[in-house]
């Protein structure tokens, strides 16, 4: 599949409240292209609740229901049941949440909906922070990263949400990244026709949140994958397949790039380089990624 194979039709309407260079709208465009107009989306508190724009207008051409921060998956369970009871089983129900609403406050409702076998797609766009509220630490924030609540760098490593999701043994789960739209599109297409709970997480580098120039969103996504900080994979009925660059890293066909190649361009890690290089903490990040890949290889290769 090439970029030109992606449909022209747009359900994201220009002129929204999104920041310039926003990864969320970039991802949303692909989501809409893959899932089509017969889709209903449930959005908890997250950047998208702002991106929608101001009442009485919206920048989305897909019915969208805002719901409380921790309630996306539960709301989606209700929406799905409501449509099913009316025989409208052809509608794709999507919960679209940030990492805060997924890893932290929404994890209970998410786990419940997965366990209940709710027939929906849960998509987490992960920018590794509470960006909408002004860049606070979340369970997805990587070790060492500055946020407004981890002023000298986060002292804990992020959760591995993918593995938490896998423990639910749902029919389809995947990790994708905004820098790889064809991969994301394919995963969404695949997810669309599967029955039951599906989970897709999209790495979404945030220019104001990570402190990088707004034209670098795609590059930051590419480097997240090339350094191995983020892996592209999918899980179909417990069978894990790594995709694209991550597959090559997994199979040892390419070396993952040093983490420095990614973090040195992000202001959130500046304190690890200035005034002097914090070799210990940079190594800790590197080691953590090594451990993650070691675990991946042990489990899935």
């Amino acid at each position: 599949m090439a970029i030109k194979d992606l449909p022209i039709e747009e359900c994201y309407i220009p002129g929204s409240a999104a920041c310039p260079g926003c990864p969320a709208t970039m991802a949303l465009r692909i989501v809409y292209k893959a899932l089509g107009k017969n889709t209903v989306k449930i959005v908890p508190a997250c950047c998208t609740a702002v991106i929608e724009s101001l009442h009485p207008y919206t920048s989305f051409d897909i019915p969208t229901m805002n719901i409380a921060f921790e309630a996306a998956a539960a709301g989606a369970s209700g929406v799905e049941a409501g449509f099913r009871m009316q025989g409208k089983t052809d509608i794709t129900v999507v919960a679209w949440a940030g990492d805060g609403g997924t890893y932290d406050i929404g994890i209970q409702a998410l786990s419940g909906a997965l366990e209940r076998n709710t027939n929906f797609i849960y998509i987490c766009y992960n920018n590794e922070i509470y960006s909408n509220t002004g860049i606070q630490r979340s369970g997805a924030t990587p070790y060492g990263a500055w946020t407004t609540t981890t002023v000298s760098g986060k002292t804990e490593f992020r959760k591995e949400m993918g593995e938490i999701i896998q423990a639910h043994h749902i029919p389809y789960a995947a990790q994708a990244c905004i820098a790889y739209p064809e991969d994301l599109f394919k995963k969404l297409q695949k997810a669309k026709i599967i029955h039951g709970p599906r989970y897709i997480e999209i790495m979404a580098p945030c220019p104001p949140g990570w402190r990088f120039p707004m034209e670098k969103t795609v590059e930051m996504g590419t480097m997240a994958v090339e350094t191995g900080a983020w892996a592209l994979y999918e899980v179909e009925n417990d069978k894990v397949t790594f995709n694209g660059r991550s597959k090559l890293i997994m199979e040892g066909k390419v070396e993952r790039k040093p983490i420095e190649d990614w973090i040195k361009y992000q202001g959130r890690f500046r304190h690890l380089f200035k005034p002097k290089k914090d070799i210990k903490r940079i190594k800790a990040i590197e080691d953590h990624i090594d451990q993650m890949w070691e675990r991946y290889r042990k489990c899935y290769l």
């Binding site: 719901i67 539960a74 409702a109």
Partner: peptide
């Protein structure tokens, strides 16, 4: 559901479909 918060959220979601 797995909590009352989710019970009401699910009722809201369902009710919103009509």
């Amino acid at each position: 559901v797995e909590s009352e918060h989710s019970a009401m959220a699910a009722c809201i979601g369902a009710s919103a479909t009509g």
